[in-house]
Simulated assay, not measured.
Amino acid sequence: MKALDFAKFGQLYKNNGKWNGKTVLDKGWVKKSFTNYFTDHKDFEGYGYLFWRKVYKMGNKNIEAYQSSGNGGNKIIIFTEIPVVMVITAKAYNKPYAHSQADKMVQEYLLPALKMSNE
């Protein structure tokens, strides 16, 4: 799959299962996918059906997202409050820094760039 295909997959979830006005995924499935099934872990942001809940910080604001994360730092990130889906493709396969490096790129560079472009 290409990065654009991953972005389309993320946008399908962002649109609650609709693509070009047609229901492709049941809205209930999308909601279940984003539901945290590990509420007993206090330090854990959450995990649903193959989607991790992640809260990014921008200044004093929390920006919630759900993301699919693959080996090497690959991610499809769906933001809940802003109209953005991000895709990161990376090659840090089996490296311990893969996901933290991708998260750092989002928090320190990509989200601030979005804020600047909307001012």
Rank of each mutant, 00 (worst) to 15 (best):
A113F: 11
K75E: 13
T39L: 12
G48K: 10
S100N: 14
V55Y: 07
K31A: 15
W19H: 09
Y56H: 15
G70N: 07
K14Q: 13
M105I: 13
M116E: 15
W52K: 05
N60A: 09
P112Q: 08
I77M: 04
F9G: 01
K91P: 02
D26M: 05
Y49A: 10
K91I: 10
K2D: 08
A90F: 02
Y49N: 13
N74C: 12
K27F: 03
V106K: 08
E81I: 01
V106R: 10
G70E: 06
F34L: 07
Q67D: 05
E108R: 14
I63F: 12
F51M: 08
K54W: 10
L4Y: 06
N16T: 09
D26P: 02
Q107G: 14
L12Q: 04
M86P: 02
T39P: 01
Q101T: 15
Y49P: 03
A90R: 00
N74W: 01
G10C: 01
N20E: 15
K27Q: 11
Y97R: 12
V87F: 02
V84A: 12
F38T: 08
F79P: 00
S33T: 11
K8N: 13
F51K: 01
N94P: 02
K115L: 10
I88H: 03
Y97W: 14
A65T: 11
V85Y: 02
H99E: 14
K2V: 03
N94F: 11
L4C: 05
N94W: 06
G17H: 03
S100L: 06
K57N: 14
N71I: 12
N71P: 03
K31Q: 15
K91V: 08
V24S: 06
M58V: 11
K31H: 11
I63N: 10
A102D: 04
V30G: 00
V85P: 05
G48S: 05
Y93V: 13
K18L: 12
N71M: 13
P112F: 07
D103N: 15
I63Y: 12
N16C: 02
L110Y: 07
L114C: 09
K115S: 10
L110S: 00
T35G: 03
K22M: 04
L25G: 03
Y93G: 00
G21P: 04
W29K: 06
L114K: 07
F9M: 10
D26E: 09
Y56K: 10
A90I: 01
G17W: 06
G73H: 11
E81P: 02
V84D: 07
E64K: 15
D103I: 10
G46A: 07
M116P: 00
Y13D: 00
E108L: 12
S100C: 09
A3W: 00
P83M: 06
K57C: 08
I63M: 14
A113Y: 14
S117E: 10
E108W: 04
A113N: 09
I88E: 00
K31L: 09
S69P: 07
Q67Y: 04
I82M: 15
F9A: 04
T80I: 08
D40T: 08
V55E: 14
R53I: 08
T23L: 08
T89S: 09
E45D: 13
L12R: 03
A92F: 11
E64Y: 08
G21R: 05
V30C: 04
G10L: 00
E119W: 05
Y109A: 12
G17E: 05
K42Q: 07
K42M: 01
A92C: 07
G48D: 09
Y47C: 04
K18N: 10
A65H: 05
D26C: 01
N60E: 14
V85I: 09
